[in-house]
């Protein structure tokens, strides 16, 4: 019965992806080339993590759970560093700083939640929660990179003007962050605004469907949203601080 249900869901998901691909090919938006392999890998990855969580829950080893989180962080850093387009920074450095930014910001939260017993290190709890935060951090670095590149092109003259007037890396970095961070966090801020009045977010839906008390589901969802906000706000700041502190602020065209 469960297998039939899962099969139905997969077929439905692929129908949706197929509709996007067909529309994309017809209108030449150019997304389908990435979408086809991604949709296959995405299903494999999700199924794989499902089996991993199942196995880890049975084994009950917290160290293995942390290894999985570390693996997720490495992947997140790799994906977000691929989106970073400033050729002045070597890809390896971008990856390293992405990793540290995602790890520092989100492990801090996970540690805090573990400390006050909001989160336990059991696989079915810590892995999905860490995944949410790490993905939020990854997305925020990708978005930040996009906005930063745009800013460096659009405001090149102003940034040169700042340097000409003796502004150091710190002043220019703060100026860029001040412009890019509001744009980077717009999605999560809108999600916070709209939660409950426009949509019921995914975690709450899952909890409600699993029969959790609606108020418990609501507070959990609120914590998840706040954690995502924290991650999306601080991860790019930490990332840009690290990369500009150790490699400098560059005003170079994107590759």
């Amino acid at each position: 019965m469960e297998f039939v249900q899962s099969l139905k869901e997969v077929i439905l998901a692929y129908l949706l992806i197929l509709s996007v691909v067909l529309f994309d090919i017809k209108n030449r938006y150019g997304v389908w080339k990435e979408l086809l392999p991604v949709s296959v890998f995405s299903l494999i990855q999700l199924t794989f993590i499902g089996f991993v969580i199942l196995y880890l829950t049975k084994v009950g080893n917290s160290f293995l759970n942390l290894l999985v989180i570390l693996f997720m962080t490495v992947n997140a850093a790799f994906i977000s560093s691929k989106r970073f387009k400033l050729k002045a920074y070597k890809p390896l450095w971008v990856f390293v700083f992405s990793f540290f930014a995602i790890a520092f910001t989100n492990y801090l939260l996970l540690f805090l939640y573990w400390l006050i017993d909001v989160l336990r290190t059991e696989a079915h709890m810590i892995i999905p929660f860490a995944g949410l935060l790490i993905a939020a951090g990854m997305r925020s670095i990708s978005l930040f990179s996009q906005y930063l590149t745009d800013l460096l092109i659009k405001e090149k003259d102003i940034l040169e003007g700042m340097f000409a007037l003796g502004a150091g890396n710190r002043v220019v970095r703060n100026y860029l962050l001040k412009k890019a961070i509001p744009l980077t966090t717009v999605v999560i801020r809108d999600m916070l605004k709209a939660a409950g009045i426009v949509h019921i977010p995914g975690v709450m839906v899952g909890l409600l469907m699993a029969g959790t008390h609606p108020i418990v589901a609501a507070t959990m969802q609120f914590l998840v949203l706040a954690s995502m906000l924290f991650s999306m706000f601080f991860t790019p700041i930490v990332f840009y601080y690290l990369i500009t502190h150790f490699r400098g602020v560059f005003l170079i065209n994107p590759r």
């Binding site: 003259d157 102003i158 040169e160 003007g161």
Partner: peptide, 13 residues
């Protein structure tokens, strides 16, 4: 060496 830009907007932020 101080530089006064051709476009004054570059220096006014």
């Amino acid at each position: 060496v101080g530089y006064v830009f051709q476009n004054p907007d570059n220096q006014l932020f």
